[in-house]
Computed example of a mutant assay.
Amino acid sequence: MNKLLVEGLTDAVGFVGGALLGFWIGRLLGFDIFAAGYGNSSIGGIVLAGLGGGAGLQLARYLRRKARKEA
């Protein structure tokens, strides 16, 4: 499989998975990313989804580097 395709797919899966995890953690904490306006609840949800997406992306890249070293 093409190296760039694998890199793009793993980055996308990591980002989306992390963003969803951040979204659900925010929901559990009472933040609502879809609340009307830009109140504290909405901003908190957006921040958690963004942090989750970034963390998921970094985790995907870490795991890809680790798998490359072991191969």
Score class of each variant (00 low, 15 high):
Ile43Ala: 05
Arg68Ser: 07
Arg64Phe: 05
Gly18Ser: 08
Phe34Thr: 15
Gly8His: 01
Arg61Gln: 09
Phe15Lys: 06
Ala67Gln: 11
Gly17Ile: 00
Ile46Arg: 13
Asp32Cys: 08
Arg61His: 12
Ala60Asn: 03
Val13Cys: 08
Thr10Leu: 02
Ile33Lys: 02
Arg27Ala: 11
Leu51Tyr: 06
Tyr62Ala: 13
Gly54His: 01
Gly53Glu: 01
Phe23Pro: 06
Ala60His: 03
Leu9His: 07
Leu51Gln: 02
Val13Phe: 12
Gly18Val: 08
Leu9Cys: 09
Lys3Gly: 06
Leu51Val: 14
Asp32Met: 10
Asn40Gly: 15
Ile33Leu: 12
Leu20Val: 04
Arg65Gly: 03
Leu59Ile: 13
Leu51Trp: 06
Trp24Gly: 09
Gly53Cys: 03
Leu57Ile: 03
Gln58Ala: 15
Ala36Gln: 13
Ala35Cys: 11
Leu5Glu: 01
Asn40Glu: 15
Gly53Ile: 07
Leu57Cys: 06
Ala19Gln: 00
Arg68Trp: 14
Phe34Ser: 15
Gly18Asn: 07
Gly37Glu: 07
Asp32Thr: 14
Gly45Lys: 01
Leu57Trp: 05
Asn2Lys: 11
Gly30Ala: 00
Lys66Leu: 11
Ala60Pro: 04
Glu7His: 11
Gly22Met: 07
Gly30Phe: 00
Ala35His: 09
Gly54Val: 13
Gly50Leu: 10
Leu21Trp: 01
Ser42Trp: 14
Arg65Met: 08
Leu21Ala: 08
Trp24Met: 13
Ala36Phe: 11
Leu59Asn: 08
Arg64Ala: 08
Gly53Asp: 02
Thr10Pro: 09
Ser42Thr: 15
Gly56Glu: 04
Gly26Thr: 06
Gly53Met: 07
Leu5His: 02
Thr10Val: 04
Leu29Pro: 00
Glu70Lys: 11
Arg68Tyr: 12
Ala19Ser: 02
Ala67Phe: 14
Ala71His: 06
Ile46Trp: 09
Phe23Val: 14
Trp24Phe: 15
Ile33Pro: 02
Gly37Pro: 06
Ser42Phe: 15
Phe15Ser: 11
Gly45Ala: 12
Ala12Cys: 08
Gly37Met: 09
Tyr38Val: 14
Ala19Leu: 02
Gly22Glu: 04
Gly50Tyr: 04
Leu20Asp: 02
Lys69Asn: 05
Phe15His: 09
Gly50Asn: 02
Arg61Asp: 06
Gly37Leu: 12
Ala12His: 00
Gly52Tyr: 01
Tyr38Glu: 15
